[in-house]
Design a protein around this nucleic acid. Structure first.
Lengths: 230, 230
DNA sequence: ACAAATTTAATAGTATTACTATCAAAAAAA
DNA sequence: TTTTTTTGATAGTAATACTATTAAATTTGT
């Protein structure tokens, strides 16, 4: 799997950057160090000026790669969801049994990524933390509809669609396959966030429990398509 | 219920404001018009300067009530969760059967509030929209732990606790009562947001479906405490 | 009704943010 | 080695997120 991925180029929506950051050393510095910096100080406190100082470059140079920090966040979170999608496909592709396939998918989607060797030397764990802490801000804004039209959330949605398909494959009569899929992906992020900051409103104090919680919900939902409270 | 609530004063954490906005006309203008303005232009674009202009007052006057716009957001979302808690208690208190009580609670928590007559003439629907669009930003920040210690999220957590108790009352052996409760409350907001901006990754195109989706999950989870994928 | 206290308005000012513009130096490509 | 592209250095602007000061208006106590 490592070899496989190290040769893979992740395609990110072209409108998220001005100049492809993978095309130069400065560009990849911006991405890798930008991730580290956001993880350290949070997206709110993050500025291109601070990043420029850290990589010993200038604000104006960074602006030649990214229009603003919002698009930078969209760029790096798209990277994350791309890696996630890739991992999902690799891990589930060979599984025949559709239920097992779905369960594997939930493991991938709710779990911590291994730090894979990729084209860019990105700190995957830092990136994951950023997604947990900040991704929600990337799509909660007044321009969502416009940005959505431009395909800025394509990768994320494609991941949800993959889960939806797996769910439908297990039980084609289930009434809420899309809500269930989006709930698992967003819910996992939320439970991880709670585990870090609001321990008393979650039971997910370990990776395994988080995974179990969602596997439990999904399998229950799909085995029992109807319930007594309709 | 309307009479009941019109006499009720909602207590909000004192550190969220400098001067109690309910203590003066200007204060309530700040709150009611602030809610309208945030709904219209979004929290990102919202500034005290713009609000001052709208209520024909000044920036400095608003700063005498709230330290900054982040605390203002925490204040109004606390108001929302307080109303929600109040509605929950009123609606479920008299129900004897614990399963029915829980189902009623889910209806309240996932549904749209009626526009109740309260001490402050707040646009409840606008406030709900704000919570759906912006609440996640209120607790996704680098100061969460500190703010959590100061009790800024007390009301929200208390609401979750109430749901947790109801869940445990229905099935005391269920392994994830807290994760389930927090998932319902946060998940409902998320599904509502998707319904507005990402229709293709949700099945919740109506209030009823959203409610059904979560009732379905909760009842399934509590009737079947174990599952075959352990 | 009047003085005292409190609240608000008006104005000014500061540091930081989020950019844009220009031009020269450095590096890469032809 | 010349041309093109990329980067660095510097400067500048409008807006944001505040703080401070003082005068005017309003409220309160007696």
């Amino acid at each position: 799997m490592e070899q496989l991925l190290s040769n893979i180029r992740i395609q990110i929506n072209e409108n998220l950057y001005i100049k492809d950051p993978e095309s130069s050393n400065l560009g990849s510095q911006i991405v890798t160090q930008g991730i580290e910096l956001i993880k350290e100080i949070g997206f709110e406190q993050f500025t291109f000026k601070k990043l420029a100082k850290r990589i010993q470059s200038t604000e104006s140079s960074i602006y030649r790669y990214f229009e603003n920090k919002h698009k930078f966040l969209l760029y790096i979170t798209s990277l994350y969801w791309s890696y996630m999608e890739y991992r999902l496909v690799i891990a589930t592709n060979s599984i025949q049994d559709c239920t097992q396939k779905l369960m594997k998918a939930i493991e991938i989607v709710t779990g911590t990524p291994e730090n894979l060797s990729l084209s860019l030397a990105i700190n995957q764990l830092a990136l994951r933390e950023i997604v947990i802490e900040e991704f929600t801000k990337a799509y909660h804004n007044k321009a969502v509809d416009d940005e959505n039209k431009k395909g800025f959330f394509q990768v994320y949605k494609r991941l949800v669609f993959r889960l939806v398909e797996m769910i439908q494959h297990v039980n084609k009569d289930y009434l809420y396959p899309r809500s269930l899929a989006s709930s698992v992906i967003d819910g996992a992020l939320h439970q991880h966030y709670l585990a870090m900051h609001f321990q008393n409103i979650t039971d997910c104090d370990s990776e395994e429990k988080t995974c179990q919680f969602f596997k439990n919900i999904v399998s229950n939902q799909l085995n029992l398509a109807t319930n007594e409270f309709n």
